[in-house]
């Protein structure tokens, strides 16, 4: 759906982005990951032409983005910023209605859509008439998201959208983000420097360094098939946690012993991450847990068996 070909951006002598190419499929969630100054934000901003590339081409749905006036292009691309960028002199309702106004929607349609989004984002409708500075950081960020989603654009660009939030708020928003059906229909490119966030929210991750893509792939690819030492080192500190979070029970299903005891125990679905499964052992103090795959197949597994299956899986990957 989105395709970048040999895109570069030079600021004077500095090569902020140096000949990168990537492709994002429809409804995919691509994360641009890297440290500050790696060129990830510049890359993102070239897609809605906030920054014009020095060379290279970007296509959306096969159409070169330079074929259209930038204003028109941007109206079909949602954009969420780290510092929300809400208009302080507009009420929440007016902020959300900016793009519909540009698109000349009638008032009723805008209002209906705004009310719908407020509900989906768990925001009380009474907030519509307050000014952004009367809301908490998390609420402001949700309004920023609503503003980007209101016209239901097929593409959403997010520049460190949760970077300014505290850990608890961020964890909550992550959960909502994953659950939001609006977002499942969208092609999303998100910039972050937070490895955990990248692995949690991304279908695919582009790890960038010094203006180049070091490795592009699924979270599991990056973890178990690192392209080079840089990738390995980048993930090293949080490796174990990332592995547990990345691997699902379905991934190791065939490695789990095929046994089913009719005892009274907790049941988890097979698309649970290993991390959640381990947490269940720890917090429920259970000896064994039932794992069920699409309600057809049920396996009763204890902690040892789970860990051994995971180790076998890791060895197979390497």
């Amino acid at each position: 759906m989105i395709k970048a070909e040999q895109v570069s951006k030079h600021f004077g002598k500095v090569k902020a982005v140096d000949g990168i190419s990537f492709e994002v499929q429809e409804q995919e969630n691509l994360i641009l990951l890297g440290t500050s100054g790696c060129g990830k934000t510049t890359t993102l901003k070239m897609i809605n032409r906030l920054i014009e590339p020095t060379s290279g081409n970007i296509f959306i749905n096969g159409k070169n983005i330079t074929d259209e006036k930038p204003e028109i292009l941007r109206r079909s691309i949602g954009y969420v910023l780290q510092n929300n960028g809400l208009f302080p002199h507009y009420t929440v309702a007016e902020n959300i209605a900016i793009v519909p106004q540009l698109l000349k929607w009638d008032k009723k349609r805008t209002e209906k859509r705004a009310a719908e989004l407020m509900e989906k984002l768990h925001l009380s409708a009474s907030y519509l008439n307050v000014y952004p500075n009367e809301l908490s950081g998390g609420q402001q960020q949700r309004i920023g998201l609503a503003r980007a989603l209101i016209s239901d654009p097929p593409v959403l660009l997010m520049d460190e959208p949760f970077g300014a939030l505290d850990n608890v708020t961020r964890a909550n928003i992550h959960k909502e983000f994953k659950a939001l059906d609006e977002l499942k229909r969208k092609t999303i490119i998100m910039v972050t420097h937070d490895v955990q966030e990248a692995f949690e929210l991304g279908n695919r991750i582009c790890l960038m360094d010094e203006g180049k893509i070091v490795q592009s792939g699924t979270p599991a690819d990056l973890l178990f098939k690192p392209a080079n030492k840089f990738v390995e080192d980048f993930l090293k500190d949080q490796r174990l946690q990332l592995e547990f979070k990345t691997v699902c029970l379905t991934d190791i299903w065939s490695l789990l012993p095929n046994q089913h005891h009719k005892i009274d125990a907790l049941t988890l679905s097979a698309d649970t991450s290993l991390w959640a499964a381990l947490e269940s052992f720890r917090f429920s103090n259970a000896e064994t847990i039932h794992f069920s795959k699409e309600d057809k197949e049920v396996k009763t597994i204890d902690f040892e068996q789970l860990m051994s299956a995971f180790n076998q899986y890791k060895n197979k990957q390497a």
């Binding site: 809605n48 906030l50 930038p70 204003e71 028109i72 292009l73 941007r74 109206r75 691309i77 954009y79 910023l81 780290q82 510092n83 929300n84 960028g85 809400l86 208009f87 302080p88 900016i98 793009v99 540009l102 920023g144 503003r147 660009l157």
Partner: peptide, 22 residues
């Protein structure tokens, strides 16, 4: 605020709209 200007641009406002509305 630069973020407000960036948001206005990214939403597809023209230069004049940014001037008069933001």
């Amino acid at each position: 605020d630069a973020a407000v200007k960036e948001a206005a641009t990214a939403m597809g406002m023209s230069k004049w709209q940014i001037l008069f509305k933001a």
